[in-house]
Simulated scan of single mutants.
Amino acid sequence: MAGKPKLYYFNGRGKMESIRWLLATVGVEFEEVFLENREQYEGLLKEGALLFHLVPMVEIDGMKLEQTKAILQYIAGKYNLYGKDLKERVFIDMYVEGTTDLMELIMSHPFLLPEDKAKHIEVIKEKAKKRYLPIYEKVLQDHGENFLVGNQFSWADVQLLEAILMVEEISADILSEFPLLQAFKERISEIPTIKAFLQPGSKRKPQPDDTYVTTVRKVFSMYYKVAFN
């Protein structure tokens, strides 16, 4: 019997959070190994555990997987959240890529210089309200169904909810002009496994703080000069 998936990342959201969301949605318990210092990361490199020298890395079903999208596609496919055919899968991928773009914009915020953060918040709100959220509102309006693809719950629905909640942390009334997304949020949030993941005490991570930012910089600083803005 296979053990629980093991997630290697920092003790924070970042790119691992969508993986946590998806595993929690399908009711799969998982373990986490938090990278707290440079030595842990170098140890994984020496073991050959990081093929691309990247995290997130997930041990699952006897494999060590990197690249966030590949990990998410595997989990979604294994647990029947990836459409019934190639056509549905490509739409799921397309919608997920859109929410990923928005979420990565938000993920970059804690790493910006203090003087850039206020302007960046306005950029996030503008892009969410004018570019991204109207797309998903229109998708729901055009087909009149409860889910984004094939009238069936999928990985795309999970990630859209995650993105909505991230934007609402920045602008609580962001959905005021999007009634279908408001209803979507309420509907998907009531799925039992998701409802449990949204409760205090779950493995959902809070918004990034200074400790998270410092840890990420410390672990990666010798290998990468990352432009976060």
Rank of each mutant, 00 (worst) to 15 (best):
E42V: 14
Q182E: 06
D209N: 09
K69Y: 14
E122S: 12
Q199S: 09
A70L: 07
S202L: 04
E29F: 05
K4Y: 06
L65C: 05
E190R: 08
E169S: 12
E145Q: 15
F10Y: 05
K15L: 15
Q199I: 11
E104C: 15
N151E: 07
V58Q: 01
P56G: 02
S154N: 02
G14W: 10
G150M: 09
N229V: 09
S189N: 03
K129N: 13
S202Q: 01
E59W: 03
Y9D: 00
S202A: 02
W155H: 11
L148E: 10
S189H: 07
K225V: 10
I92F: 01
E97Q: 11
G14Q: 10
A156C: 10
D61E: 06
D210G: 04
V58M: 04
L112I: 09
N37I: 06
S189V: 13
E47T: 07
A156D: 03
R187F: 09
S154D: 02
P192F: 01
M103Q: 14
K4L: 09
M103E: 14
Y223R: 04
L35E: 01
F147W: 15
K117R: 09
M94H: 05
L181G: 03
F153D: 04
E47V: 11
E169D: 11
K4S: 03
P192A: 02
M57Y: 08
T100W: 13
V55L: 00
L161Y: 07
L198F: 01
E88V: 00
K205R: 06
P114T: 05
E169H: 12
V90R: 08
F111C: 06
K195R: 08
I188N: 05
A128N: 04
V55Y: 03
D209K: 05
P200I: 00
L86W: 12
F30H: 00
L161S: 09
G62N: 04
V55R: 02
A227G: 15
F220L: 13
K205S: 02
L72T: 00
P110N: 06
R217F: 08
H53L: 13
L148P: 07
I191Q: 06
M94V: 06
T99M: 03
G62Q: 02
E29K: 08
E66Q: 13
M16H: 10
K195I: 00
F111T: 08
M57W: 08
Q67K: 10
T215R: 03
S18I: 01
I188Y: 09
